[in-house]
Nucleic acid binder design. Sequence first.
DNA 1: CGATCGATTGATCTGCGTCAAGAGGAGTGG
DNA 2: CCACTCCTCTTGACGCAGATCAATCGATCG
Lengths: 236, 236
Amino acid sequence: MMRFTGRIMTTFGISASNGPAQHPPPLPSDVTGSVERSIVVDAQSDIFGSSARPYLHVLQTGWACTYQLLPNGQRQIVAFHLPGAVLDLDRIMTERLNFSALALSECTVGLLPLEWVRTAIDTRPAIRDLFWTLTTLENRALLESVVNLGRRTARERLAYLLSDLLERLQAIGEALDGSFTPAINQSEMADALGLSQVHLNRSIQRLKTEGLVAIRGRRYEICDAKRLRQVAKKAG
Amino acid sequence: MMRFTGRIMTTFGISASNGPAQHPPPLPSDVTGSVERSIVVDAQSDIFGSSARPYLHVLQTGWACTYQLLPNGQRQIVAFHLPGAVLDLDRIMTERLNFSALALSECTVGLLPLEWVRTAIDTRPAIRDLFWTLTTLENRALLESVVNLGRRTARERLAYLLSDLLERLQAIGEALDGSFTPAINQSEMADALGLSQVHLNRSIQRLKTEGLVAIRGRRYEICDAKRLRQVAKKAG
DNA sequence: CGATCGATTGATCTGCGTCAAGAGGAGTGG
DNA sequence: CCACTCCTCTTGACGCAGATCAATCGATCG
């Protein structure tokens, strides 16, 4: 058995208009310790497709995303995932997924046997509640994404994404100085926000000239997180 | 105790690119029978806001939607709900919701005590699995909505919505002849699809002239469901 | 019969997509 | 140490999907 001592996190949105963001609780070590083995996945390689598999995939290191491919070749990125995330919670209750997962940087991924998970769910209410809560938080995040894509402009969507990444990175002890180096490029951001790469670039320029963010090399510095969050929310 | 003998359904998307749509299983009658009481909600009235409440809300008759309001007054409708749907599954594991629910027509809503639900989850694995599965299916549907809003044109989004409604209505034994009278107007469709009402109207005209749908009065007739689904998927 | 609400249509404007051409690194190999 | 290549970011020009504003039309209903 591989030991994984990190925290289990999943995707979640920045503070909803109706309350503070809820951060997923860390998995107890006897859960993380039940990872059967870890695999290393190259950047830009699929971690899994939509087929059935007897494991839950826990992202241990690196950045990943979940996405869906359209028949015409377009791609919609559904969520970015940071270390600690369970990528395929849906597997607990359904065979097949309606999305795939991709490694954005080189990733190590822990394989948690579904059988173990299901047994734990039957016998240990705390673990059951944990996984169910993670599923619910994923729901909240997806709902926020629907709002983001449906009712916000390019600039606002980008502000939302950057605020969200900052908050989640800080929750796992990174980007504590308000700056971070995302393992994603502008095309990937565009595919997540439903925009073209060119227009995403122009939106970044705009946030830069507005003094909300600064970019040095590959590093994004959030200059005014509060105002950025306000832009994301379409508030004053 | 109020008896509710209908099926429990939840929101779900039309067939994912990776497999057929999965329809939620009906709730056993001892669950539906545990509805403490039913309330009647007028059309265009809120069923609930985002605050905590000791009940799960089961839609028994009528159409409803879940939505989020932005600070600037814009509205994003997240999902339309048909009779049988549980509107606030998130309450099982979290206190506050990040959305509200609105009655689109006059609705009767069953109040299922959260305490009863939590006890049932602890003691009856089949019921636990049912509610968890419903949560997972909601996840799938939200993911499809993200794809819909992020990567499809107005015409395609509308085709998706109409296909989805048709399929879900048929699953509860309605619209079996391929036509139905939705309890929603064009503004509400627009708010769900991230479009303006005017442009939504023009998209409907387009589907009409293409011979995919016909409208007589308030009744929508789906003339070519297969082709409509292809439009929604951006395929051939 | 006015009043109200939703659907329809027209005119105009703009946010964003598309196409295409540079520009700046970072790595590679001669 | 310098060319060469490959990415990714940047910038410009142009076109279109969809927003906005506003008026009209139809149907339903006290």
